[in-house]
Design a binder for these strands. Sequence first.
RNA 1: GGCCCCAUCGUCUAGUUAGGUCUAGGACAUCGGAUUUUCAUUCCGGUAACAGGGGUUCAAAUCCCCUUGGGGUCACCA
Length: 526
Amino acid sequence: MTVRTRFAPSPTGYMHIGGMRTALFCWLWARHNRGQFILRIDDTDQQRNIDAALVPILDAFRWLGLDWDEGPEVGGPHAPYFQSQRRDLYDAALNKLLDSGKAYRDFEVPEDTQAQREAAEKEKRVYVSSRASLALTKDETEKLIADGKPFVVRLLVPRADKVAINDHVRGQVEWDCSLMPDPVVARSDGSPLYNFATVVDDAALEITHVIRAEEHLPNTPIQVLLHRALGNKTPEWAHIPYVASPGSKEKMSKRKIDKYRTNPQFQKMFELGDQVLSRIGIDPKSDALSPVMVAYYREVGFLPAGVLNSLVRLGWSLDDATEFFTLDDMKRKFSLERVIKSAAGLDPDKMLSFQAHWMSQLPADQKLDGCLPFLKKAGLIDDENDPATRARVASVIELAADRLRVFGDIFQLDEFFVADADLKIDDKNFQKRVVKPETAVDLLRDLRKRLAEVVDFASAPLHDLLQSFAAEKQVKVGDVFPAVRLCVTGKAQGADLFRSLELLGQECVLRRMDRAIGLAESQRAS
RNA sequence: GGCCCCAUCGUCUAGUUAGGUCUAGGACAUCGGAUUUUCAUUCCGGUAACAGGGGUUCAAAUCCCCUUGGGGUCACCA
């Protein structure tokens, strides 16, 4: 039998990173078995702009390279793939349930049901449905329907039964039906509820494996019962652990983003994000984008490979040593049997380390193509297609080497793109290495003269020049190099100083030294 | 609170299905040291865990029970 898995997001306007991990596992299991992966949109309760709310979700899949065999845009033999458009199927199933007596119309007003629920809770009693409407005769029921009395349809839970599943990750899990209230399957307007629509669709789409997050475990007995009542073959289950917030066992949630900001384990991610996003015109403090969303990582300049590798290692491992996986590796090696049971916290540190690894593997031209849009968005370059610009950016990237972990890191070398007048200088270090030392300014002034005389303004000769300059002045290189760096890049540390000088070019270096010397002088005077 | 799930270094995990080779392995983080003009990288090395208690057994991280702790979920949401 062909393996068919599905991921069924509701259109919320963003793709949750934890949901993405679930989707990845679904996709992997389907691909591993040469089966099909289906995307179904669970939009049974939202009416408004589904299309717009769906875009970020599909974009996330596309960005990561996870394709779907059936679903939005691609269609398929079981189209449509939007629950809002499959109402006739639910209606038919509902009638089947009603006709067979497996479900009943419940005329109890919601307030009464609610009151019973509360009373039971108060008395520490298990709440089960009153089933008062079940006592109605057929005539009475028809009268109520004719009178337009509202009702919901509930599944008649077989209270004597037990439900047991053999979960692919959790093993045997059992529930006692005598403890279950009769679940509503259709609202008073006749529309289906999640559990019902899901069961109808999973059966219709011939889903063989329902792989979803652990939080759905309590839904499972209801769904099993529904499948049984409908006469379906029940799918196999795999309840994978949810993704927890860093350093905790709590499910990661969009609503807790403010709390995460103060989480020390999350700090590094927010710092990186804030720094990059603020450069490209996105408000880092806005709720519109945060590390719980897949889009965040794209905007900050992560590679799909890095994100994918992080996600797959959350709750799954191949063995005791392998850490790096390409999508293709995962596809070949993934198995549900090796999915762990406990919740795994997202680890920003490790995520960044995976990212750094995959960035280091990326060919230079792809690094270039990745960085260009960031520089463009930040207004640091004008034309992404201009050959001279591309060449310069390529040089900077080469110079940056492993300092470039995410594309957004290119902003750490913004000194190569800003106008001299706009160069920001790290004041604290400038004071320490240029303004305060007695001889620093004189030294720099002398050095500036020498630099002006250089004919071959290249890294190696510049290195020699600075070195011999320090020797000649009988000062340590540590008194010269950092000062020069501060003057021309504005930073206390960074990429190779001499290659930086070469890349900046003689004229620029001289201008920046003049500017810095002037600045230091005026500060010394005051 | 009911139901259900989970429990190995700070974190992600290997080891648990078939008890011994586990004085518990790897990775990230961290701390040292080497390399380096700074930072980063790289390389070497260190610190660091079987939640607790009972069983079963010659032998338990591994099997059983209890306790504790953590978490998920309890809608005419998905």
